[in-house]
Design a protein around this nucleic acid. Structure first.
Lengths: 217, 217
DNA sequence: TGTTGTCGAGACTGCGAGTCTCGTCAACCT
DNA sequence: AGGTTGACGAGACTCGCAGTCTCGACAACA
């Protein structure tokens, strides 16, 4: 099944891919594509323009093939547009007090997700992910970091005795992100700072441990 | 722009639609379609068969037009398949004690959603709804009843003083359904009865009011 | 100057939702 | 019986969109 010889060192090292010839990738184009994707994702009142690949290409003034040359799927473009745009700041405060830390975390997360030009993006992205396994996996990876940060925060609280030793930290994490995504997607209620504070406080109170001074309505 | 006269009472009363002639709707066909839809929705390991309209028609041994004669869209068929199949029992216990009532409600909801032949159905339906506004609206209506039942349950508890007067009941409702859908869709964790109990208890404890005997870890 | 690889453009495949048409058949009427 | 109406199975069709392929122009190297 082999037609050519074992290729003994013939000139250029085959391990070294090659010095690179030909026209180079134009980074302006890359940025234009991501910017166009963001513009469409933000797009007017609830699913205004459909966010198709053709639309992205047209909006960026770019050939469709240029998109598929650098990204494996539409979802990949959208996700990179989001992540490269996200300021990505969830400051990870560590004051040594679950209640304060958790309030900061939840408030920042809600604020970040509800910001007027990220909320529709996240929502559309989630909807895309619903029928794009590839994108879903990438988003899972993306959110995993947040989940872990929150989990670590809670673990510290539990180790300090502020949360009950048998508190279900995974459940608490899911309560936070569950509410976040539920409200973001169903959209019947706003993700307000008030709700964030309230959620953090009742969460701490409901899972308080021995060292918890948690009864201060 | 009118070609015929104002049509004065000509024979059969036009208000009375007509006595009905012609072949009647075959109800076996209707049931066969819904059953086929359920079979596909339940379908093997995670998105095995795509649940297309053609697939439903083939599975039911039916012409595609027969489906569209009676339902406005694929989503409508799927939703009716679900609702007509759902035993729809969330017993709405009212013992006069939030903790007990809430635990029963959450446990039943989790168990219902996690049942091996409803979980994939709900998940697929939610994913369909992500890009089918019509279906999304219908599902919203469907879940509204559950939300209201839970809200009423919590309101009773608050009126009794078991929950704080300023407790954010909407937030509590969203925590329950948020966790439910989040786990159902992301699928990283099971919707166990244990989690249900835990959730109900911490929720009550976190939002306890004056009359609450809520500190019994 | 030739080779390599990017770029815009646009035709093309494949799939799935929803529509249209056809030949058949059942339920009612006269 | 014969006729009208509408349900039914079958399958061809349109349309929108993801992803592929090809083409001519052009930029970066040797």
């Amino acid at each position: 099944m082999r037609t050519d010889d074992p290729e003994p060192p013939p000139g250029p090292d085959p391990a070294q891919p090659r010095p690179h010839t030909g026209r180079r990738r134009n980074d302006d184009v890359r940025r234009a594509i991501l910017a166009a994707a963001m513009r469409l994702l933000r797009g007017g009142g609830e699913a205004a323009r459909p966010v198709t690949v053709d639309a992205i290409a047209r909006e960026a003034g770019v050939g469709k093939q240029t998109i598929y040359r650098w990204w494996p799927s539409k979802g990949a473009v959208l996700l990179e547009a989001l992540t490269s745009h996200a300021d990505d700041v969830v400051p990870e405060t560590d004051v040594g007090n679950v209640r304060t830390d958790l309030t900061a975390f939840v408030t920042a997360s809600f604020a970040g997700a509800a910001a007027p030009d990220t909320a529709p993006v996240l929502a559309k992205l989630a909807r895309e992910a619903a029928h794009d396994a590839h994108l879903a996996a990438m988003m899972g990876e993306f959110t995993e970091a947040r989940r872990n940060a929150l989990l670590a925060l809670l673990r510290r609280g539990r180790d300090r005795g502020e949360l009950a030793a048998d508190a279900d930290l995974d459940l608490m994490v899911d309560q936070v992100f569950g509410v976040l995504w539920y409200r973001l997607l169903v959209g019947h209620t706003e993700l307000t700072p008030g709700a964030a504070t309230r959620l953090a406080e009742t969460l701490v109170r409901g899972n308080a441990g021995s060292a918890g001074n948690a009864g201060e309505a």
